[in-house]
């Protein structure tokens, strides 16, 4: 109870302190710094050395003690300086599926001459992961762990560094500027097609496998063609880009529909549908999606696919029931 209240206050405070942004540069406004456990131990050792040096009236030990204090002091500033050389930009270009490791793409820049940066990150309660920044890497993939299907507002992501000696830990909690749509995990399934014409004959099913596509001929490549339709044989011969033209056996209007009795194994059904959506899109086929009340009219293309996936991700069982009660 108290913990919850405390967490709420903390996140509220953080929202004010480090507002959500597309890109972050670590600076005095969003950086925290404290001695690490090792740092506290070295502080403890310095105190011990002071006592030892004083009691033995040993100036060398006192010198070591002052040296450690001086080094702690310098290290404090060095840690902060090093940490504030980082800047980070989150990228929401990937697709995330349930039960698979979600890796967030982030563009992490490190503005430090000739130094190889090392940055740790942690999402919620997982352990610290280490990112080694090298100058020629474009994106860093941040592992966030596995998520359930649905739309997730992510917690803040913690970045930290203990450079140069591990004495101080600099860290920041960054809000990710978008919510994560986690699609159902694709599970291989056979395509069950209900043509719109035979709308009510739900049992009249026709199995179509993608292998039934027959090569119709070769035509000039157009930019909308999928890349796997390019006839590489011809490219290799130097005849330019040519596309293989497939005959479409499946009729232009396919509707993917959630089975009415699938409330018990809803996730499995959604997973199968996800697989089919991806498969059909790969073959540039026109299809629609019907999930209880929600209907997406048959269409084609990347935008359509993403819309369908989003619908699958956010679909909840309640939508389904209301449909049937009606």
């Amino acid at each position: 109870m108290l913990k919850k209240w405390f967490m709420r206050q903390k996140s509220h405070w953080l929202d004010k302190r480090i507002p959500i942004a597309q890109a972050y540069t670590f600076d005095v406004n969003n950086t925290f710094i404290m001695p690490s456990i090792f740092g506290w131990s070295v502080i403890g050792i310095s105190v011990c050395l002071f006592v030892l040096g004083t009691n033995y009236q040993n100036n060398i030990i006192l010198l070591v003690c002052y040296f450690l204090i001086a080094l702690l002091l310098l290290s404090l500033f060095q840690s902060y300086f090093y940490f504030t050389r980082f800047s980070i930009k989150f990228n929401n270009a990937d697709e995330y599926y349930a039960n698979r490791d979600v890796t967030l793409r982030a563009d992490i820049q490190f503005a430090h001459k000739e130094s190889f940066g090392q940055l740790m990150y942690r999402y919620s309660k997982s352990i610290d992961n280490v990112i080694n920044i090298e100058h020629d890497t474009l994106f860093q993939h941040l592992k966030l762990g596995k998520f359930a299907r649905g739309q997730h507002n992510l917690d803040r992501l913690t970045f930290s560094s203990t450079y140069p000696f591990g004495l101080f830990r600099c860290w920041t909690h960054l809000a990710i500027p978008f919510s994560l749509n986690v699609y159902p995990e694709p599970i291989k399934a056979a395509l069950v097609v209900n043509n719109t014409e035979q709308n009510d004959k739900a049992d009249a099913q026709r199995l179509v496998s993608s292998s039934s596509e027959e090569l119709q001929g070769i035509r000039e490549y157009s930019t909308t063609d999928p890349i796997h339709h390019v006839s590489w044989k011809h490219v290799a011969k130097g005849q330019g880009l040519l596309s293989k033209d497939f005959a479409e056996h499946v009729s232009a209007k396919t509707i993917l529909r959630l089975k009415p009795n699938s409330s018990l194994n809803l996730e499995l059904e959604l997973s199968k549908l996800t697989y089919l959506v991806n498969q059909l899109s790969r073959h540039s086929q026109t299809f629609g999606l019907e999930l209880g009340r929600q209907q997406i009219l048959p269409n084609t293309g990347e935008g359509h696919r993403l819309q369908c996936l989003k619908e699958l991700a956010t679909f909840s069982i309640n939508d389904f029931f209301t449909e049937h009660q009606r």
Binding site: V51, T54, N55, N59, L63, Y66, F67, I69, L73, L74
Partner: peptide, 20 residues
């Protein structure tokens, strides 16, 4: 870099008699 700071601390910090 820590050395000058060390020396300064060494000279300035009051020296105590043994505590025990």
């Amino acid at each position: 870099q820590a050395l000058p700071v060390t020396l300064l601390l060494f000279i300035v910090t009051p020296k105590l008699s043994p505590l025990w």
